[in-house]
Design a protein around this nucleic acid. Structure first.
Length: 189
DNA sequence: TGAGTGATTGACT
DNA sequence: GTCAATCACTCAT
């Protein structure tokens, strides 16, 4: 497995989003290791009304304006975490939301954290995957190339990528910024 | 389809 | 300082 280098994250967000498909997300915790293949992403850009960074930098979204290749984890709807990868250049405020994973290592731990036996429900949604992987506030702003939460490059790009409008947002719905692996049965819808 | 949940924000004193 | 509206979701119905 190969760690992604800084150049991978420093490209345009709309390039990084599809490039992340097929990559492997790994989280080491005291409870054990969980990992999964990224099968669904969404791009959030600088001038994007649906993006947290749209109305400027605040305490909440500060991580989004940090170094590309760091994690932006936020709490929303009073009960859910979502996990994003910071992209482009420092200060832009762009990121890719990871929406779904195909579970690989640590499936028993994921089942325990999620409270379900159904493998299709472990990581098929942005808040589900953070719960299954044990990602929370303390991962916000961490470097994804070192530390307990990391992303590794895919071995091959042998799959077809579909593009659709994003899901669950009220603004910027004209933009076709959602990417997923067409053949995967682990995407969120 | 709709209820539940709470941090964040922007508009007011 | 306060207050109300908003929100990139999930689960049960």
């Amino acid at each position: 497995m190969i760690t992604l280098n800084a150049d991978f994250f420093s490209k345009l967000t709309l390039e990084v989003a599809p490039n992340l498909l097929g990559c492997c997300l790994v989280h080491d915790t005291p409870e054990g290791r969980t990992s999964g293949k990224i099968v669904e992403t969404e791009a959030y850009l600088e001038d994007d009304p649906a993006s947290h960074s749209f109305s400027g930098r605040t305490a909440r979204n500060a991580a989004m304006f940090g170094e590309p290749g760091t994690a932006y984890v936020y709490f929303t709807y009073g009960m859910h975490f979502c996990f994003n990868v910071v992209t482009n250049i420092r200060g832009k405020g762009e990121a890719v939301l990871i929406r779904a994973l195909e579970p690989l290592e640590g499936q028993e731990l994921m089942r325990k954290r999620r409270g379900t036996q159904d493998i299709k429900k472990l990581c098929s949604g942005p808040a589900r995957l953070t719960q299954a992987m044990g990602i929370a506030r303390e991962n916000n702003g961490t470097d994804l190339r070192r530390g307990s939460l990391r992303i590794f490059s895919r071995k091959s790009a042998d799959f077809e990528i579909s593009r659709t409008p994003r899901i669950g947002i009220k603004k910027g719905t004209d933009n076709v910024f959602r990417f997923y692996i067409k053949s995967s049965t682990y995407v969120s819808r």
